[in-house]
Design a protein around this nucleic acid. Structure first.
Lengths: 211, 211
DNA sequence: CCACTTGTAGAACTCGAAGTATACAAGTAG
DNA sequence: CTACTTGTATACTTCGAGTTCTACAAGTGG
């Protein structure tokens, strides 16, 4: 027992809410704020090298706290990491409609990536490769593939090339967004058009017999 | 001391070479053969989950050996992993010309990926993200980017979109090859044409102002 | 036969990083 | 003031996995 986790047991109904902007240059944060700040720092730290290669000391240093404080907010390293990925997934799902693909999907993806670039990269560059945590992002990737498959099926005959394109297009889209982040995020409007055009290029390449 | 590494000290000039095909159903292999067999097994094992997530027990089991034997061929887990990556890099460099990009580059890449799919995936899906080992593949990725940059510079004005395309095109190519492997490797000739077409689609998307 | 190598089996050692514990300092609400 | 929470600092324990060691079995070439 002796669970130091998120919800402290007794007598924790304190500070229901504070008057907004009550504190000037304060050092101490209320529980929820501190938790968010830790998640921000952990996202940054983990985005540099992934789960196993990042020690809790690095996370604590990034947050400007001691390791002990992390354990007052999260039960374990894995718990913290899941919380980081969960938040990133949730933000992504809120920013982009999860359901289908339309002409606003790519702009929405660009907005989401720009709003939380570390979380975005962490999800697709690391979490997608970590067996223990892949499940968190698998719902997104498999959904993307299914949507792509469905949309392509109207234009491409069933077969290996349809599967090929349905796998490749979501990956291309994500990588194009990351490359856009790395290029300094030029002109989001143009970026959406260019990425869309690139996707259409792959779709064209997947059509029946090119010879 | 007591180095169990690759070159055993004294009196190891044994078995200079054996007559080819001398052994029928033998269990014991000569040093170089066993080493290759271990590298094969390690490539398979590491390709499933990467360096840290794969234990030496799994590698040994994949090779059908005990952990102790691994240490008679490699000094450490890191040494073994580097040897695996080295071999995969070398094969890749031999199969594809390292120098420039021509119309045989994509077929060559497909041949290389088909010849050693586990090594190929291991390099690009895992090693590229592992800080400790990134250096082994960095020469390849930076070279690809430079070649792409150089080739695109004749058709696209310098600026963020040139950088964007130069980063994206090598990634797209690699991912397209992996998607081709995952789709069951249909028709390599068509695959090369389709991938080439997809690359041209991204190039078109990177040209000046699309509006 | 003998020297040497390949191989098994398994215990023991090591070490870094996760996780736990305790003591103390300081802000905040009632 | 008092109770409680947030915070620091540091020492300690635990544990998994890499690494080492020893003992023994069996094939191989000279």
């Amino acid at each position: 027992m002796s669970n130091p986790g998120p919800d402290r047991g007794p007598a924790s109904a304190r500070r229901p809410e504070a008057a907004p902007g009550e504190q000037g240059p304060v050092r101490r944060l209320r529980r929820a704020e501190r938790r968010e700040q830790i998640l921000d720092a952990a996202t940054r730290a983990f985005a540099r090298a992934g789960y196993t290669a990042t020690g809790l000391d690095e996370v604590a240093a990034e947050a400007g706290l001691t390791r002990a404080m992390l354990y007052r907010h999260f039960e374990s390293k894995a718990d913290l990491y899941r919380a980081v990925l969960d938040r990133a997934c949730t933000r992504l799902a809120e920013a982009t409609g999860t359901d289908d693909f339309d002409e606003d999907s790519i702009p929405a993806l660009l907005r989401a990536a720009a709003a939380d670039p570390d979380g975005f990269k962490l999800l697709f560059r690391y979490a997608a490769r970590e067996p223990e945590f892949r499940d968190l992002i698998d719902s997104i990737t498999t959904a993307s593939r299914e949507i792509a498959h469905r949309n392509l099926a109207t234009r491409i005959a069933a077969g290996p090339w349809l599967d090929w394109a349905a796998n490749l297009i979501p990956t291309l889209t994500i990588e194009a967004v990351i490359a856009w982040l790395d290029a300094g995020r030029p002109d989001p409007g143009q970026a959406a058009d260019r990425i869309s055009q690139a996707v259409h290029g792959v779709m064209a390449a997947a059509r029946p017999a090119p010879s």
